[in-house]
Nucleic acid binder design. Sequence first.
DNA 1: TGTACATCAGTGAACGCGCGTTCACTGATGTAC
DNA 2: TGTACATCAGTGAACGCGCGTTCACTGATGTAC
Lengths: 209, 209
Amino acid sequence: MAEDDPNSGRRGYHHGNLREALIAAVKDLIADHGPSGFTFSEAARAAGVSPAAPYRHFKDRDALIADVAEQGFTAFAEHLEIAFEKGGTSPIRAFEAVTRAYLTFAAEERAYFTAMFQAGPPQSAEVKKAGDRAFMVLQRACEGLVRHVPEAKRPPIHMMAYHVWSICHGIAELFGRPGAQSRAPIEAADLLEAGVAIYLRGLGLLPDG
Amino acid sequence: MAEDDPNSGRRGYHHGNLREALIAAVKDLIADHGPSGFTFSEAARAAGVSPAAPYRHFKDRDALIADVAEQGFTAFAEHLEIAFEKGGTSPIRAFEAVTRAYLTFAAEERAYFTAMFQAGPPQSAEVKKAGDRAFMVLQRACEGLVRHVPEAKRPPIHMMAYHVWSICHGIAELFGRPGAQSRAPIEAADLLEAGVAIYLRGLGLLPDG
DNA sequence: TGTACATCAGTGAACGCGCGTTCACTGATGTAC
DNA sequence: TGTACATCAGTGAACGCGCGTTCACTGATGTAC
């Protein structure tokens, strides 16, 4: 009931939704200036509010970034879940869609990705939890692939998930951002597809050749 | 002849080797406070010099960090080269030594690694060149493995090198630093060894099973 | 429905601080003769 | 070997600035009766 102006912004003395507005502002600032290229005051200014206002919602700059990271991990998890479901009943299609989605998120949501992975060590429990949710999608995608493999030949599922995560992440970090592409004459997405295929073949999950 | 005091430091009015001293100081600062957790003045203070002195050697903070990154890539390349040579005449041993060395460097030289990969986009030509030198070691390690494979089955060498780089880098970023290990119940080094083995098997470079 | 009051979520002025940067300077070093 | 001078690599004082943080305050909102 308090939210009846959807394209809101300010509504007078009270902002209405400053907390979310600050997070959105910081996301933009990170996109433009990197994870540390802004100050607490700048965040307030970007949200159109006095420099003291953010203290009502965040202890300090790090708490703000942590919330951006948490929101980023949640968006990431949803992004991966959607890709997973698009695979429908085909485990291999679902799997490949998830790995592709990893890259597209990293490329298209650079600000979130930066907050999630570059913003220092102070990982709160909430951030970890949101991160785990994203990781679980990867793991489920692996499980789907592995389910029909004879148990004796089945790789430890969490190991496999960590591997896939690492490949996706490595490619995203090294080749998945603007400016980095000059390093590789291959598209990041193609590089990932080929790498994952080789890995799956190594597990005996794809036919040879 | 100017360097006759090896454990030098200050020698009076003139520092003697301020440029290197600043780089070393910044390396320590990055290790302690992250890539952006220090100021130009702090770097000067850490080197025992007035805040104006660094301007004789560096245009600004970014130039300083760029030099740390360059020095880091050079040290990285040397670290990988040493590992490569330790493999002796065995291509597979050389290859595995190089991938392991990737991880140990990331873990033991966290400050360098941070400057190399986390410090924003302003990658100078010198930094790129030093980075390429490190990458070439990886590529040579791949070439050694692949040389005796029938040409028809031989994977594109640079693709393979990018894959290996990505796996190493992803694991280093996600699991290779203190604080992150809680995420994976597996040692980063074991995770890497297993992942690389699976990948090589997928290429037909290792026997099955 | 109206009123009184508590609480919430902002303001804006103020403070001390350290930063980046400049400047004229000066001590140390190197070199030509 | 000595001297004069140019150059190099620092000093330290100064500046304006924006930051983080606090504080008493006030306008808006929600709720009990």
